[in-house]
Design a protein around this nucleic acid. Sequence first.
DNA 1: CAGTGGTCTAGACCACACT
DNA 2: GTGTGGTCTAGACCACTGC
Lengths: 264, 264
Amino acid sequence: MAPMNLPLTPTDAASPAVQAPAVTPAFSPLYQQIKGLILQSLQSSEWKPGESIPSEMELAARYRVSQGTVRKAIDELASDHLLIRKQGKGTFVATHAEHQVQYRFLKLVPDQGDLNTEGPAQRQIVDCKRLRASADMARVLALRTGDAVLQVRRVLSFAGVPTILEDLWLPGAPFKGLTAERLTAYHGPMYALFETEFGVQMVRAEEKIRAVLADKSQRELMQLPNNTPLLSVERVAYTYNNTPMELRRGFYRTDTHHYHNALN
Amino acid sequence: MAPMNLPLTPTDAASPAVQAPAVTPAFSPLYQQIKGLILQSLQSSEWKPGESIPSEMELAARYRVSQGTVRKAIDELASDHLLIRKQGKGTFVATHAEHQVQYRFLKLVPDQGDLNTEGPAQRQIVDCKRLRASADMARVLALRTGDAVLQVRRVLSFAGVPTILEDLWLPGAPFKGLTAERLTAYHGPMYALFETEFGVQMVRAEEKIRAVLADKSQRELMQLPNNTPLLSVERVAYTYNNTPMELRRGFYRTDTHHYHNALN
DNA sequence: CAGTGGTCTAGACCACACT
DNA sequence: GTGTGGTCTAGACCACTGC
């Protein structure tokens, strides 16, 4: 017995009221509904990052559908990088803590060699303080103007050369208790810390990239001469439900590294 | 009756002889083999861009497999953007000529509004000449040093403002007969011209992005002041078989536009 | 209406990992 | 061997397109 086809309104977040609803009966295939149910379990942390989820057969029994339908739901979640399939072992909740997928969102690579030859980055927290969200900041992070925001500034160096200067803004509430000390003490990607310490999983991001000239404070922190062009990378990272959870603005040196992008 | 499982050596292009073949029996699932056969038909232009391919049932009969197996092969080709499914109509060979997917590889967008509000770019061919491939150029385009190469320089303007300066290098042989006149006369994306006039389909590309300072000739062509930072976007575009067919280096103004990238 | 792709099912078997 | 995901099949039915 299959569950009813709940007429889910598809992705109507902040849809304009002017939009004609038309005759669309809002049909949603079964596997999409199952996908939604699995997504709910991920959001509610029923299954945590790194853990395995129940087998396809178990989920099929739980949702009263065939294994094939569960499979298709999991297929999509896997291609969204929310789940990771491992043949013979099971299906696992994706995590930023594994070596394989570490720095998934960092697309800066050295011109010669790769991340392995280069080794891990040296990290230095320059600043970490709380402040009130400006109107712009509030809009981007889906907060209200004046809400608490955490601001972090740090420098990443490769082989001793300062290469990345980053400013981060995080919503205060979910990241209550985050301090410069904890950031410094933690060894591993920042998104892994967010995951394990604050239960915040970043699943998607969007970047706006520009070429800019380094300003005075940037030149000082990265030891750069005048008129040095930098790559400005403005990123908004999202958790489940398209909730923005981080605004990050990176300034990358691109004389020895470049931003790599594959177009498909 | 299913075809034999041909032990296809998977992606062994220029594999070092040192590599141990190991015990791997090189298993390749049936749908991957079907995918390869469909790919061959695409390469050989049995089905041309914009045309429909045979229905799933027909292909299943042709390859002596079930419809489901053909479906999975087509699914992958569709997610690679080589085919486009249209419910009720059929499956079509992807093309750069359709309005939907035009400028698929151009990720520069205006800070306000979108490509529609902005309208089409004004194009101006600055230069178009034949020359001999340098060693570097030959390596990138998989040619031999000294082979004929076509070099094009052009400027794209939005709302009358020069925004993109591009240098292109194309292998001489496949693009025999391409001239500045033909480039100027053609209205539509350059990749659409490559497709219809030269039978060259670009299916994938890789970009290396840097921040640079505009040099003298760039400043003149784009009417820029001194010390203007530009986004340098170096792109290698590939046809089927991972054959490189174009090297393109674009310089983008990013004061009114930005390079947009989605991370998944 | 017929033809296309899209969904769903049920069952069989294969490849892989652990024990 | 047992359990997992991965492949393949065959058939039924649904949704969309165009005649």
